[in-house]
Design a protein around this nucleic acid. Structure first.
Lengths: 179, 179
DNA sequence: CTTTACATGTAAGCCGTTACATGATTCT
DNA sequence: AGAATCATGTAACGGCTTACATGTAAAG
């Protein structure tokens, strides 16, 4: 049982999904390709933590809809109560930033323009997600922590706060260069 | 040539270091163990991008001091001008947050207390680093972007901004739970 | 007519962590 | 007496990415 396996259980704890849908759902929190997810789902089935139902489709390929078992939910709850490992970030830009003084101003400018654009895109994307959650209008309305929507609500809040502060950082760096 | 190899070149572009020192220096930006770094350094030597000097020591083990070559600096500058890959973050806590509503309030409380403590520790650590850079007193003084210290300056600024906003997020989540 | 979305799976290879191996000095 | 720091290296294993493989339908 690795972290990604527990991540799949987390998502199945809220709703039933196909492997393909799980891949799309877990993307924002844990980058994983389908080639990694399908074998893990097979292992979870073998251990009796999830089960699946075959669904035949005519227009699209047949699919398997996975759901979490009682045993799976128990193991998940146990894992939830354990201390979390420190987040790991690998950011190429931080390596470049370390020796930024060795390149020309125009190269620095381009790098930070791109970086700013990336964070602006993220911010727009996350703010878009907000509109899909009915109860959040402009981030003012609050969701009760007992609600199953609470998880997505706090994650989106964090994603937006991080994107905003990183955008701000890019603009600050650029202001330092111009002077 | 993978990203970590370029990361090592970035650090060697500012100063000469042993493999052991490189491991310590790169930790904050790219988590890597010595077992990964030593073979990469050997490969960089083979390609003529870095070279090393043997230094015998009596009290401590003998060491190799690495420095970047002209060829290494050229390849680094070329890489610096390329677009940066998107940062990858793997945060166990985000997986847990997704289905946070399935556990009891006291479990949520403990998880976010620990998370808050972690970000508080990071913030303290980064603010400590600041005092080691002479020109930053409380983050007010500015460093010219031509200075080799500029890289560390902007990285620290980002690390502090991120730690602060994540701390704020932890406190906000906890305020949502109490109500 | 090509790309994207849906849908599942395997194989090869690189990346990263843990463990094995050695050894002196300093701190607790 | 045991742990931490400095210092280098290899081996085994698990995690993640890229590529191989197949097939339909909708959208550009």
């Amino acid at each position: 049982m690795n972290t990604l396996s527990f991540g799949l259980l987390c998502i199945l704890a809220t709703h039933n999904y196909t492997g393909y849908e799980l891949m799309l759902k877990i993307q924002p929190f844990w980058q994983a390709k389908h080639s990694q997810i399908y074998p893990l789902l097979a292992a979870l089935v073998k251990e009796g933590l999830v089960l699946f139902e075959d669904v035949a489709q005519s227009d699209k390929p047949d699919k398997k809809i996975y759901s979490i078992t009682e045993k799976g939910l128990n193991e998940l709850k146990q894992w939830m109560a354990e201390s979390s490992a420190e987040p790991v970030t690998r950011d190429e830009m931080m390596l470049k930033a370390y020796c930024i003084s060795i390149v020309d101003v125009d190269v620095i400018q381009t790098l930070f323009d791109e970086q700013e654009q990336m964070y602006a895109n993220r911010l727009a994307k996350y703010k878009n997600y907000c509109e899909l959650i009915p109860k959040i209008d402009g981030g003012i309305a609050e969701i009760d922590f007992h609600s199953p929507q609470f998880g997505l609500y706090i994650i989106l809040k964090k994603a937006i706060m991080n994107a905003e502060v990183n955008l701000e950082w890019c603009r600050w760096v650029k202001s330092q260069i111009k002077k």
